[in-house]
Design a protein around this nucleic acid. Sequence first.
RNA 1: GGGCGGUUAGCUCAGUUGGUUAGAGUGCUUGCUUGACAUGCAAGAGGUCACUGGUUCAAGUCCAGUACCGCCCACCA
Length: 894
Amino acid sequence: MDELSPRYNPKEVEEKWYRFWEERGTFAPVHKKKPYTIVIPPPNVTGILHMGHGLNNTVQDVLIRWRRMQGFATLWVPGTDHAGIATQNVVEKALRKEGKTRYDLGREAFIQRVWQWREEYGSTIIKQLKKLGCSCDWSRTRFTMDEGLSDAVLEVFIRLYKKGLIYRSNYIINWCPRCNTALSDEEVEHRELEGNLYYIKYPVKGYEEQGDEFLTIATTRPETMLADVAIGINPEDKRYKRLVGKTAILPLVGRELVIIPDDIIDPHFGTGALKVTPAHDPVDFEIGLRHHLTPINVFEPNATINENAPERFRGLDRFDCRKKIIEELKENDFLLKTESHLHAVGHCYRCHTPVEPRISLQWFVKMGPLARPAIKYVTRKKIVFIPERWTKVYLEWMGNIKDWCISRQIWWGHRIPVYYCKDCEASGRKDAFIVSKTPVTQCPSCRGTNIEQDPDVLDTWFSSWLWPFSTLGWPKKTKDLASFYPTSTLVTAQEIIFFWVARMIMSGLEFMGSIPFANVYIHGTVRDDTGKKMSKSLGNIIDPLDIIEEFGADALRFSLIFITAKGQDVFLSKEKFHVGRNFANKIWNATRFILLNLDKEKAVPDIGRLQKIQFSSADRWILSRLNQTIKTTTTALEEFRFNDAANNIYEFFWHQFCDWYLEISKRDIKENSVTQAVLLEVLTKSLQLLHPFMPFITEEIWQILASFSAQSASKDASIMLSPWPAVKKEYINLDAENAMRYLTDIIIVVRNIRAEMNVAPDVKPDCMLVTHNKKCTELIRRHINLIASLGNLHTIEVAESGGKPPMSATGIVGTTEIFLKLQGIIDIEAEKMRLLKKIQKKEKDLAGMLNRLEDAEFSKKAPHHIIEKSIAYRDALAEELNKLRIHIQNLEQL
RNA sequence: GGGCGGUUAGCUCAGUUGGUUAGAGUGCUUGCUUGACAUGCAAGAGGUCACUGGUUCAAGUCCAGUACCGCCCACCA
């Protein structure tokens, strides 16, 4: 295994190491060292890897591999969450194909069925993470429904309950009529919809005396009028002040509605009067509480009309009911007018059905007391957001935090550990429930055994918010917990700050007494090249697995990092992955070149044993550049500037090492052992710098390289456990860098002249360099061969002064004048003829194009973009012609 | 309604505390199959840094305002 295939095959290489790492499980941390822990956002168990995960996990793996090489005990616990609603939806969908519902199976069997599904498909995303090269400790993989994590969930519920932070209450919550469950505020997505604002006339009792018998109310949801219990107006509103306390009549129903004042009502919206519907609107619910109104609920859980509405509406879907109401209002002349109106409507984040506000009995967590310390620790910078601007977003949300509705009316999840004594309930005792971690079979107060557990389960986030410590064994006092909590860094996307990040901070402080992580790195959202968020429903997905298949995981990883500026959104298209693919190919071939030229019989000396005096200018230069690169790359990683880090290595490796040093080395690589040592040194260190970004290719080359290295100790050892390169200050040499820049500039100018004068590649002109600077003269003298070979020159003459030799082209670097002698090299007359011919052809083209554009037929008939193209072409031709003419002038001046 | 981000090369984007000639990838033009690599090499063209004003010896960078694009939050029914 000591030769590289002529062509780099990422699939082969990545497959090999992916399996090797999976079998050997090399990622477990060594406990003795200083810990560095990363918190992975546990992906949804129903999920498949999308580009957002790709970016997220690449960033995390870069951090973890880098820190591992730095000698930290790096722990990255992988896992998935049980995604209650999503998973249940998936399994129910499958059942529906069999013509069954979950009720046909019953709770036990259904849950069995979900577990079965999870066995089969639940580890898809874990496998995909492995393919991406993630170096998680797979032996510690966790699932939020695991025994340990479930125990943590129950423990937390009990503790919070005992502290008075969990309560049960009738409250207006977000209800998804399709999923048939409550949703937290964060699970509701607001979408702008074009709706209507209906102006409905409510007759007012005793209002006739004022000359108008109606109070007009604007609403977007006329169907909820069936549940109206009052009319609200702003107490300061002069138009309606006198109506307070009077009654209005609810059209179509006939119920009497009291008119009440409330500050929350905006006199400038609609007519300034509000129909109060406490059962179906959160604002109205609050008003209802303040004014002791009894709500009337007219919806079934599936959002059809129930028996509280007049019979003719019963059973109608909410939207059908809306139509019917409008019709009836029109018929009875209650509808004054309809205006179109743009407003935000809440939708279920899982199934995208419009959410229905609904009063129901739910469990809540009181958030205020949990939020206070979580605010404090962020304000005092014990937890730092990167980029910093998210701190403000976090603090603002925490400052206005609302209680958290944690019960869900589904079956898949952690069942709420609350037991009701049916006997006590029947005899009218309030609070006839027991909160208990273990199953309850007997009522402690009446000794009855008619006990039922709460049928609801907990919000999935109620388990995810414990992730940083529940995965380490909490509530047990484990070694892992002691070693790895608090963790170091959390890497996540901004969408999840409220769902998860904020709640983890609160739970960490509450249950562990310390912050869960020190840094929160928020990366950008991955979007398609039109700026849309990538999502399955939009069909604009670039599947990371396709990219891995086509270009390789290394290419995917490097490209993602390369284009992702700190916290900025990423716009993707397939072409963007060419950077990574091409770079991997470059690394492979550079290595191939070096290895092909090493003397296999003789060991290459270790760089450290060489005397400084043995190094050439180029050696000194590249070693200085290497150490500068180590420095800038390390600093960039420390500051979470991943793209800068990637850019640094890319620039160094390709445009300095490959473009220049490798080319220079070609002159004597076979026999110069110092050059060989430098090549190996730079290659080795570069691979190490690259390893966090491109783990597969660097590992492959590392292993092959081991057989060439003087230190045989590195054999068999993985690059991932090798020490991160340290900056060796003694190699940083600004003089060497300046000298090399001067020499390369001269070579570039020479090449420039050659290209301009059309000197054939195999022709070597003579050159004269004129400088009065002694240092420059000295430098040129020492590197005449170098300049000659890279500039493809015959002879080089250095002079302190002198005029332009006849028949020569000129260039300049600093104060150094460069003369390329072209006498006998190019046949000026022939060259002029060539150019003139070209000019003639272009002139013809241009004339044709001008004719075409002036042609009336053409400009009439041709489509606009063709005309634009023609104009552009005309301009390009004119420009080229101009250049050719200047070129001829230059030739004449020689 | 509130908050945040963006506007730099044809396209997609970098540009750290203000400091030489504003960079990369890609695309384009020209030349090259040179024994590592055409997924490549060499050379080149291409920018009024959205706009207006201010601070400064010096502004893509700092301040104020304007315009457009995007995102998040929000109880205007």
